[in-house]
Amino acid sequence: MIATDETPLLRARGLKKSFGHLEALREGNLIVNRREVVAIVGDNGAGKSTFISCIAGAIKPDAGEVFLNGNPLELGSIHAAMRAGIATVYQDLAMAPDLSVAENIFLSTEIRRRGIAGRLGLIDHKAMRARASALMDELGITTLGDVTATAGSLSGGQRQVVAVARAVSRAGELIILDEPTAALGAKQSQIVLDTIHAMRERGFGVVLISHDLPRVLDIADRIVVMRFGRVVAEVAPKGQTVRHIVSLMLGEQSAAEESAGS
């Protein structure tokens, strides 16, 4: 497929994933364009995390395909997704609690020392600390004391902020955030939402999973609703109410529509 202006940044088609008998993801379809924030909403257990994990390579789907800029993405490979420019904030944050904040931010992308030392695999702790600190300052994150603290010693919210910072620093084209503000106070939430906004302005595609529907209505360009492992609706936030979205999530609206239609 040739990438044209109309080629979406991301196209996921027919993704399916079962855990034993449980069909966690029955039909995952998603299109994300550049400069676009797509929100995925759905009740607990609707399959949102499973869906984005299939796109990010953390889970290998049983069926389906993913294209980035029209090119097929190797499924089930975190490295392929990372190389293609996808960065992800997982719901569980994917941190190593015993490592420091700086080490977590650069986990698997460590800064090497210059010259022979670097070629021998030696890493530059000092540069990593300095850059991690600078990253926090750039994002305006104020909740964090010290980038040498271990991730395990942080509060849930602080850890979440670190995970967001890491994904922002790694993203090439697409950033996926699975409930990135769940544990955050008002101020740090705002920082994350501003960051999402800024990334979109810079041309990134953003996938945001959130249960905070008022915020979703505020920030998303499109809202994708999932129910029982399926994408069941896609709506533009303009003119939408939280109530209507909730009814879509729970299936009440469609039932009402169906009965009205028949």
Binding site: H79, L107, G152
Partner: peptide
């Protein structure tokens, strides 16, 4: 070394480390 960091990261959280690359 990076190998040393990855060793401790793996012991700290295998899933987390894998997802971090």
């Amino acid at each position: 070394t990076a190998f040393g960091r990855h060793t401790l990261a793996t012991g700290s959280s295998e899933t987390g480390s894998r997802r971090a690359g």
